[in-house]
């Protein structure tokens, strides 16, 4: 292939001082070893720990938000950066080490071969790697059902935050990207905007540090909020 596609690796980070350096270094290592042109773009979501200081020393693009926007607002910042700076693709991975950067080439190959707009990394196609807890899998099965009901498409891992997007999708996200728990709602957006998307089997790890944004107390709120968001996204023109 003659043209080397530039890929922005958007890594949202909120208080990830324990894991962020390892994630960024791993992205750079994968870039060197595979020949993919990967640029880590770390979006520091107004962390209160040493995240800002750490990422300023790393070989990455550091974007520091002046106020805490939450995961959706943070990754959207990275997508905007990728779009405005001429990247061909953006891939989102978590800053806590859940998504091994070594899996990025799998997403890239799938998006290229199938001519997709979006590739979603899924844990539940080959069922390898960290499979999450039982309750979370119940929630994921529920989203799978709800999304199939509304779009007719089966997405086995709608909560997966490991995704790759082309510029067409980034332009869409520039205008709108959900704030809180954006992943399942974004699948509705793909469908409504007639984007070509599909799932790719990937393996994930358990997080290295930090805590999930979805904790026991917030589970009910999470399910309710995401259900509402999915339905209203579907109804919106």
């Amino acid at each position: 292939m003659s043209i080397v596609n530039r890929i922005a690796v958007v890594i949202p980070a909120y208080n990830e001082e324990e894991s962020i350096a390892a994630v960024v270094n791993e992205v750079n290592r994968v870039s060197r070893e595979t020949g993919l042109d990967l640029t880590p773009v770390v979006v520091n979501d107004c962390s209160t720990d040493r995240t800002r200081e750490i990422i300023s020393q790393l070989n990455c693009v550091a974007l520091n938000l002046p106020i805490n926007l939450g995961i959706g607002g943070a990754v959207q910042t990275g997508f905007k950066y990728a779009l405005l700076n001429g990247f061909d693709y953006a891939v989102q991975i978590d800053g806590d080490g859940q998504h091994p950067p070594a899996q990025i080439p799998l997403l890239y190959n799938a998006i290229q071969q199938n001519n997709w707009d979006v590739a979603i990394g899924s844990r539940f196609i080959t069922n390898e790697g960290f499979q999450s807890t039982f309750m979370r899998r119940v929630g994921i099965a529920y989203f799978q059902w709800l999304i199939r009901l509304l779009t007719g498409r089966t997405v086995k891992d709608a909560t997966s935050g490991m995704r790759m997007f082309n510029r067409k999708t980034l332009a869409l996200f520039y205008r709108y990207y959900p704030d809180e728990y954006p992943e399942p709602e974004a699948v509705i957006l793909f469908s409504k905007n007639n984007l070509r998307f599909g799932e790719v089997p990937v393996q994930m790890n358990e997080r290295m540090g930090g805590v999930s944004s979805i904790r026991s107390f917030g589970t009910v709120y999470y399910m309710f909020k995401v259900t509402l968001a999915i339905i209203f996204s579907y109804l919106r023109k």
């Binding site: 979006v43 693009v61 550091a62 974007l63 520091n64 938000l65 002046p66 106020i67 926007l69 607002g73 959207q76 910042t77 905007k80 950066y81 405005l84 704030d179």
Partner: peptide, 14 residues
């Protein structure tokens, strides 16, 4: 509006 401002701020700072 706040979100958009914060994002523009981060991008400009870069």
């Amino acid at each position: 509006q706040n979100k958009t401002l914060a994002q523009e701020h981060a991008l400009l700072q870069r």
